[in-house]
């Protein structure tokens, strides 16, 4: 399998502040990678860079075959980012939010019903404006968007935050199913045991660089990608 993400000496800035300071990482297609690190390590910046939201200042960055130095737009339709924000419209209903995101991404609208049902958002809840939902329910709506869109690359930033126990278990199951369907998943999480349990590899970040990498229990070297620290 080829590389879904290939970053070499990647530098990204916010103004003059370095977000990523020469980060190198390779993630194979179909792999699940758990990003670890303290606050400010660069986990969210790495996910945003892979989503084409953050410019690459130097180094090389190729995601799903798209060179992010020359074209950050083409990759966006193929990735699904679950960030700190939910990217939702408060005044639209749950169903309208999911339908808008799916139609905007030119995904199959036929997947919406299944996604709502999967995340427990069918029934009366589908008609409720997102503004009236709890944080956990809003998270479920954002996840429903990803499930309905079926992106090739899932970028999950603290995906367990706000979810109850059932929601967390459901999320873990979604990651397993995404991997089984051939999608690549990169998740940044402080839920160390839970995230590692569904991952092939753990990558440690600090100061905008990869500082450690290890295979998760039960995974075999050669089946997964590599990191260049």
């Amino acid at each position: 399998m080829g590389a879904a993400i290939s970053l070499r000496e990647c530098v990204s800035l916010s103004g003059r502040f370095p977000l990523l300071a020469g980060l190198s990482l390779e993630v194979r297609e179909g792999e699940v990678v758990h990003l670890r690190g303290p606050n400010g390590a660069g986990k969210s910046s790495l996910l945003r860079l892979c989503a084409g939201l953050v410019p690459v200042v130097s180094g090389s960055a190729v995601v799903l075959g798209h060179d992010l130095r020359t074209d950050r737009h083409s990759v966006r339709r193929e990735v699904g980012l679950l960030g700190h924000s939910g990217f939702l419209y408060d005044d639209l209903s749950v169903e309208r939010n999911v339908r808008f995101a799916v139609r905007a991404a030119r995904a199959d609208p036929g997947q919406v019903e299944g996604a709502l049902r999967r995340l427990g958002l069918d029934g009366r809840l589908r008609h409720v404006p997102v503004a009236r939902l709890s944080a956990g329910q809003r998270r479920r709506v954002s996840l429903a968007v990803l499930v309905a869109r079926r992106p090739r690359l899932w970028l999950l930033d603290e995906p367990h935050a706000g979810l109850d126990q059932d929601g967390r278990a459901e999320l873990d199951q979604l990651v397993v199913e995404a991997r089984a369907a051939g999608s690549t998943v990169v998740l940044a999480s402080h839920e160390l045991e839970r995230a590692s349990a569904v991952s092939d590899r753990v990558v440690g970040l600090a100061g905008g660089r990869v500082v450690a990498a290890s295979l998760c229990e039960g995974r075999v070297a050669g089946e997964v990608g590599s990191d260049v620290a």
């Binding site: 939201l53 990217f87 419209y89 905007a104």
Partner: peptide
């Protein structure tokens, strides 16, 4: 304002529209 709330502007950029 509706795009600025809840990071919807990023959602708009990511949407591929």
């Amino acid at each position: 304002a509706v795009e600025a709330a809840d990071g919807a502007a990023d959602g708009l950029r990511l949407s591929g529209l």
